[in-house]
Design a protein around this nucleic acid. Structure first.
Lengths: 236, 236
DNA sequence: ATGGATTATTAGGCAAACCTAATATATAAT
DNA sequence: ATTATATATTAGGTTTGCCTAATAATCCAT
């Protein structure tokens, strides 16, 4: 039974979402996946079983899901497509960086490997997307993540924004409004008590960021400002 | 009930297909639509009813379907998207013209008007796709069709290929192999008896084309070679 | 170790787009 | 006018991907 539709789109969204969440924790609770995709845990559970049968992931009940090598490769291929389209949309079509995530997400499912590679050629094989995130290789390998979350810095510490985890369009628009962008210098000035919001300095402007937001901004820390304990952590 | 899927894709395919067929006849038999989309007449009939309820077309039983103004506008918008993507794929990504039709067809459904117009800007507002077909305006208006079918020419007559109706990937590949492309000079040499295939000369090569194929190649006739009867027809 | 919260599964449904088989209706051709 | 052919509709079924409500299994914290 043929459909004019591409029903594989859902599968791709699941794999991509799981891969994105996997950078935070492993294995990933099914609840997170459901929430991120905006669907019920029942539906997520069902689909995860289907993906498990196809050996794209492994599910340990009450723990979460882990992608298999094949699953991760597939996920990274999709992420590669999305990020290349993001580059195209910003660099060539002059669409602002806070809009391209959602637009590219729609294009990615309509793109085969032939177009993907032609696009990569055309763009000059960029290594990061407009949000600063690395672009996986043709073979589906993701470069190791860099930077530490802004949320982990304490007052006085700072650095340059490496990348922004593109969780939602709202987050990106929120940051774009405040002109908080990859490549910019940022410094933590204050943290409200009881693990409250951070006050940060960017350019000559001060802003207050919630913990959830700060967790998605990845920083290349400025070593001079860094406490020695944190330095140890980073250097290994 | 939200879906990760875009269920509007089918609707878009129906409208586009009907608009494309409408250049041949009006109203269009539902059978033609079903056949072109590769689905049963029952399914086509169902969907056509749905589209009729939404005032996108009108169906006269045992006659066929006509798009309403709104339906045609929508169809042309979709065709605009597809043809712009075709330009992008050939001009920028260097993908051969016989491949771009299907690839662009997938991208068109994932493209909103913002991206469409940015793409048109970027490409320098091309007026025809790589197959020579006109690109509808932003407002969804299709320029009047030009040229006459190669199949209508008789031996001795010829002209330049204006455009090729992109019915199927197979047809395009067939023509690409023989290097029968828009812009090229072509001449009919012979027609086999009983409305048989045409022998044509293109460059310094002779080829034999079936009636079905010849009907989809649109020619700007070379007036010197043309019989006077046909001349009258064309000039009105 | 036990109770409360989290996580999983089962059961039953819905909508979109397809399908086949059978039937009804209109057009066209004799 | 009748009949054969083409077209349309009805009935019943499938798959994918989602839903809610209810139940079952496990984890964790006291």
């Amino acid at each position: 039974m043929k459909h004019l539709h591409d029903f594989g789109e859902s599968e791709e969204m699941y794999l991509k979402t799981i891969a994105e969440l996997a950078s935070k924790q492993d294995p990933i609770p099914v609840t997170w996946v459901a929430e991120r995709l905006g669907i019920s845990t029942v539906s997520a559970s069902e689909m995860i079983h289907r993906l498990e049968n196809r050996r794209l992931l492994e599910h340990t009940p009450y723990k979460g899901v882990c992608l298999t090598d094949e699953g991760r490769r597939r996920a990274n291929t999709i992420i590669r497509r999305q990020r290349l389209w993001e580059c195209f949309l910003t660099d060539k079509l002059a669409i602002t960086w806070d809009h391209v995530h959602d637009l590219a997400c729609r294009l990615e499912h309509a793109t085969d490997s032939m177009v993907t590679e032609a696009l990569a050629d055309y763009l000059g094989h960029p290594t990061t997307c407009p949000h600063g995130n690395p672009i996986p290789s043709t073979e589906g390998e993701m470069p190791p993540p860099e930077g530490i979350p802004l949320g982990d810095l304490t007052p006085g510490e700072g650095g340059v924004i490496l990348r922004i985890h593109p969780v939602s369009a709202l987050l990106l628009r929120h940051l774009a409004e405040k002109r908080i962008e990859p490549g910019k210098e940022i410094e933590v000035r204050e943290i409200a008590p009881f693990d409250g919001p951070q006050s940060i300095l960017i350019g000559d402007e001060m802003h207050v960021l919630g913990r959830e937001v700060a967790a998605h901004i990845m920083i290349q820390p400025n070593t001079e400002t860094l406490g020695s304990r944190k330095l140890m952590e980073i250097l290994g």
